[in-house]
Amino acid sequence: MNPKIALKKIWLDEDVTEFVVTVIDRVSTFKSKVYVGYDYLQSLIKELSTFKDQIYGGIYDIEMGEFGPEYASGAFKARLHYYVPGKLSIATHQQTEFFDFSNRKEAAESKMYLKTEPILLDNFIAQLQKLNSGDADEAELECA
């Protein structure tokens, strides 16, 4: 499988949208379900459109859902960093919904590290726009 980050819309109402976030590196795949506010995608598109041009050391965090047992569903965070011009690194952290395990609550977690390029980020932003308008149910950020 090719490395990527994929967002798939599962469900929405007038307040929240549920996504499955899938991260694939060269060896592993990890999925988590997250909830975001209704206007989250619109904000994400706007902020990524600004970030994409910050190729000299820009840093941007994508955050979806919330970490911890107090919150519904899971969480996803990705730190995007132009560590040299034209090279974009992505560090991800994901957590599933908490569940009963022995006599405590636990959640599966994953940290993965990916690299991509500015043109692939541009493609992702275009796919997010289709996702936001309802013309698609999934957006993928291809990685190298």
Rank of each mutant, 00 (worst) to 15 (best):
I5P: 06
L12R: 11
D13S: 10
D13E: 03
E18P: 06
I24R: 06
D25T: 01
V27C: 03
V27T: 09
V36E: 07
G37R: 06
Y38N: 14
D39P: 01
Q42M: 07
S43R: 06
I45S: 08
I45F: 14
E47K: 00
L48G: 03
L48F: 03
K52C: 10
Q54N: 15
G58S: 12
Y60I: 02
F67C: 07
F67S: 11
G68D: 08
G68V: 05
A72D: 14
A72V: 11
S73L: 14
A75S: 10
F76I: 06
F76L: 08
R79I: 06
H81Q: 12
Y83W: 12
Y83L: 04
V84G: 08
P85I: 09
P85T: 11
G86F: 13
L88N: 09
S89F: 00
S89L: 06
I90M: 10
A91D: 15
T92G: 05
T92Y: 11
H93A: 09
H93K: 08
Q95S: 13
T96I: 10
E97L: 08
F101P: 00
S102P: 00
S102H: 06
A107S: 15
E109N: 04
E109L: 03
S110H: 03
K111N: 08
Y113R: 11
L114S: 07
P118L: 03
L120D: 15
L120V: 09
L120A: 14
N123Y: 02
N123R: 13
Q127S: 03
L128F: 06
K130A: 00
S133R: 04
G134A: 05
E138D: 15
E138T: 15
A139L: 06
E140A: 00
E142H: 10
E142G: 06
C143E: 09
C143Q: 11
A144N: 14
